[in-house]
Design a protein around this nucleic acid. Structure first.
Length: 323
DNA sequence: CGATTTTGACCAGCGC
DNA sequence: GCGCTGGTCAAAATCG
């Protein structure tokens, strides 16, 4: 099969769901599982039980949700050297699926430390020198150059096996690309295996900021958008866009006195002014939020400490920011 | 007209 | 080695 045919296959689903752009839905969020061992085990057990099951089996175990109860938010931080990272990601094989709840699925992100040849971290470095060189190399036809390039690449791979930290979370929203205050440029879109929805790739437009994010819709629950951030912004939120194209209400319209901080976060459905520095500074690698789990499990109470944890994780979300 | 999106092509990693 | 998949590039198209 030619590459052409192959790639055509990847574009069966172009950006055809942008017409969703109406309003955002509300997600309640009573369950928060913080830096507890339980949480890590929950995730890992879920991985082990659901990883190899069919999509239909994805509702079992862990923070299970009825297929119809799709209001939830699941987030996970893939933090370098993160303890929970090992549970939530590194136990997975490529292509394995991590069920976040509500039947939505996050593809495993973890070829990181387990794999000798990591992908994204390499790309960050190879991108500028290597990828742009590829075509030049081909044009030059320099075999020696290619070889030396390969050596360089290998060396760089070895140098940087660790991958940039990642944060992924699910949001019940009809909007595909959630406004988070930063400016993004879309640089690619791919069809995702087993999913009718494409995955979009965005890069932060700020110079020298190599933060990327991927956005895809859960095929299990199309009302859920899975957003994965990679790396950290090295700059403040562009002021001109702080609330710029955000299609929801302006920040000033929120009255946090009538809403719990958590529900504020979810209702907005957009982590406005979402600071990833805050996320990556957090000492934990996994946060799971599930509105229904509370009713199913006694121990799943929104504990004060866990709430504090979340606040620590999402300070800019939990505390109203001045414009 | 610059910025952004679209999309065909290319590449690397991985499993078989 | 081959095919599949994810990730990225970059030219063309579109947008504001």
């Amino acid at each position: 099969m030619s590459n052409e045919t192959k790639d055509l296959k990847n574009y069966h689903y172009t950006s055809s769901y942008n017409h969703y752009n109406t309003n955002q839905n509300i997600v309640n969020l009573p369950y928060v599982s913080g830096p507890s061992t339980y949480n890590a085990n929950m995730v890992s057990s879920q991985i082990s039980s659901d990883l190899h099951s069919s999509p239909q089996g994805a509702y079992g175990s862990g923070f299970e949700l009825s297929p119809t109860l799709n209001e939830f938010l699941y987030s996970s931080i893939d933090q370098e050297n993160g303890f929970y990272n090992a549970y939530t990601y590194n136990n997975c094989q490529k292509g394995d699926e991590v069920v976040g709840g509500g039947g939505a699925i996050i593809k495993s992100e973890s070829r990181v430390s387990a794999s000798p040849s990591s992908s994204e971290a390499d790309h960050h470095h190879v991108e500028d020198s290597g990828k742009s060189l590829r075509k030049r190399e081909a044009a030059d036809g320099g075999e020696a150059d290619q070889r030396s390039q390969k050596v360089v690449k290998t060396k760089k791979k070895e140098e940087k096996k660790q991958r940039e930290p990642r944060v992924s979370f699910m949001t019940k929203t009809e909007i595909d690309h959630l406004e988070d205050g930063y400016r993004w440029r879309k640089y690619g879109q791919k069809a995702v295996k087993n999913s009718p929805y494409p995955r979009s790739y965005y890069r932060c437009t700020t110079q020298k900021c190599n933060v990327k994010k991927r956005v895809e819709r859960s095929y299990q629950d199309p009302t859920v958008v899975i957003t994965t951030y990679e790396s950290q912004h090295n700059h403040p939120i562009p002021t001109s866009r702080r609330m710029g194209t955000f299609s929801g209400p302006a920040a000033s319209e929120y009255n946090s006195s009538s809403l719990s901080p958590v529900s504020d976060f979810i209702i907005n459905n957009t982590p406005r002014s979402f600071s990833h520095d805050d996320l990556f500074r957090a000492p934990y690698a996994s946060v799971n939020v599930n509105p229904n789990y509370q009713q199913q499990q006694n121990q799943d109470i929104l504990r004060e400490s866990e709430f504090e944890f979340l606040k620590e994780m999402f300070p800019s979300v939990f505390f109203k920011q001045e414009p």
